[in-house]
């Protein structure tokens, strides 16, 4: 993980949601959409490198794409991976 551009491939975008902002306030946890192949260690390193913070814990989950209908035909949006990154006390990320 020496190349920092890889970090930007791993962290796709931060997620801004009601639930996410609640978790931010209560447990200092930030939600991101991440590369589907990335593991927790890679995500930890990417977040630490991009935002210059210390990560306490990373949890991940695979989110199934939604079923969409266009006229008579059905399709799915892509599956993706969500990472919930808890930072150490006193650390914070400025998003948006």
């Amino acid at each position: 993980m020496a190349d920092s551009s890889i970090h930007y491939d791993i962290i796709r975008r931060p997620l801004f949601t009601e639930k996410g902002s609640r978790q931010q306030e209560r447990t200092n946890t930030y939600a991101f959409e991440v590369h589907s192949g990335a593991n927790k260690i890679e995500i930890r390193q990417a977040v630490e490198s991009i935002f210059s913070v210390k990560v306490k814990k990373v949890r991940t989950m695979n989110v199934m794409g939604k079923l969409k209908r266009v006229g008579a035909s059905y399709g799915r949006t892509s599956d993706w991976k969500k990472a919930l990154v808890t930072l150490k006390e006193g650390e914070a990320i400025q998003l948006a």
Partner: peptide, 16 residues
């Protein structure tokens, strides 16, 4: 704002 119901957007996000 996507991801938030009306009236539920955190103040810091609104400020930004």
């Amino acid at each position: 704002m996507k991801g938030f119901r009306p009236g539920k957007v955190p103040r810091n996000l609104l400020e930004q």
